[in-house]
Computed example of a mutant assay.
Amino acid sequence: MLTAAAGFYLGAAGRVDVRVLIETLLGVALVAAGTNAFNQLRERDVDARMQRTRGRPLPSGRVTPRAAAAFAAVISIVGVAYLGLAVNLLTAGLAALTLASYVLLYTPLKRKTSLNTLIGAVPGALPIVGGWTAAGGELGPAVAALFWMVFLWQLPHFLALAWIYRDDYRRGGLAMLSVDDPDGRHTGRMVLLYATALLPVSLLPTLLGVTGALYFFGALALGLAYTGASVAMTRAVTTARAWRLFLVSIIYLPALLTLMVLDKTVA
């Protein structure tokens, strides 16, 4: 929702159409809820084995699989259809792609390969593109930069989370990188790699004329902080350092998007 709203504002030429923005966020919220419901339906056996998720509606027995499937299907279809009718077909198509790539690729791959995190970052980064196109923005280098920023941001964020809950993921039978990385060295290297790659990519909006100097230097400072927290993970991966990186990542993205909104160049 946050990235879709930011994408809408950045993609709008001139004044923001509040009605279309609300319609976009409503459709995105429906598809996101349907995606989450389908994911929980397909992973109900995994959730039952993990302490963090065993209290969810399906593994706890509060909701039946049939009811969950019906709920997920209805709100997903309604969400995509609503975006197609109220916003535009391209945004609806991006929402459908988000749903399909998450449920049909990312969810099953979590049991098979640690590369699932890379696959899952694709649907995680598509909403900002959908927000951009909903506002009438054209597909091109500017929105591609936004996509890659959100894509790369997710990787240290989720790798840190996976390290914190590595024992739980092991119990669930999920093929996370942290499960087969006892000393955390590989996780630390990957975290630093993605955070370092994010730094120059985060500066592209200014270079592409989407934002101004305030954003550029703010993004530079935020990127250095994110990278610094990642460097600590390469020295020794501890739960405390993973939590610190996770918290930095939570601050980083809203702060970056806020800077974009505040320093958007006049279309």
Rank of each mutant, 00 (worst) to 15 (best):
T35V: 07
M1Q: 04
L222A: 03
F217I: 10
R19F: 15
L26V: 15
A267V: 14
K264I: 04
G79L: 10
L152C: 10
Y169S: 06
R166H: 12
A13K: 15
G61R: 02
L177A: 13
Y102A: 05
N88I: 13
G93A: 14
L161A: 04
L199P: 02
V63Y: 11
R244E: 05
M50A: 02
D183R: 14
V143G: 01
N39F: 12
D45V: 03
G188W: 09
Q154N: 03
G93V: 02
R44T: 05
M190F: 09
A95S: 08
L207H: 09
D180W: 13
L139P: 05
I128R: 10
G136Q: 05
P127Q: 04
A225R: 11
M233A: 12
F151N: 13
T227G: 11
G27N: 04
L159H: 10
P127L: 02
T211G: 02
G131F: 02
Q51V: 09
R66L: 13
L10T: 02
R54P: 01
R185Y: 03
R66Y: 02
Y82V: 12
E138C: 03
L161W: 12
L256D: 00
G93P: 04
L222H: 06
G212S: 09
T113I: 15
A134R: 12
V74I: 14
L257N: 00
L245N: 03
A125R: 03
V266G: 08
V201M: 05
P200Q: 13
P182K: 15
T24S: 13
F8R: 06
R171C: 00
Y102S: 11
Y169L: 11
L41D: 03
E138N: 13
A121R: 03
R56L: 08
V261R: 00
A236G: 07
A29D: 01
A48P: 11
L26M: 15
A145T: 01
V248T: 02
L207D: 06
L30E: 03
W243Q: 00
G11K: 07
W132L: 00
A29T: 10
G84I: 03
V80A: 11
R244A: 07
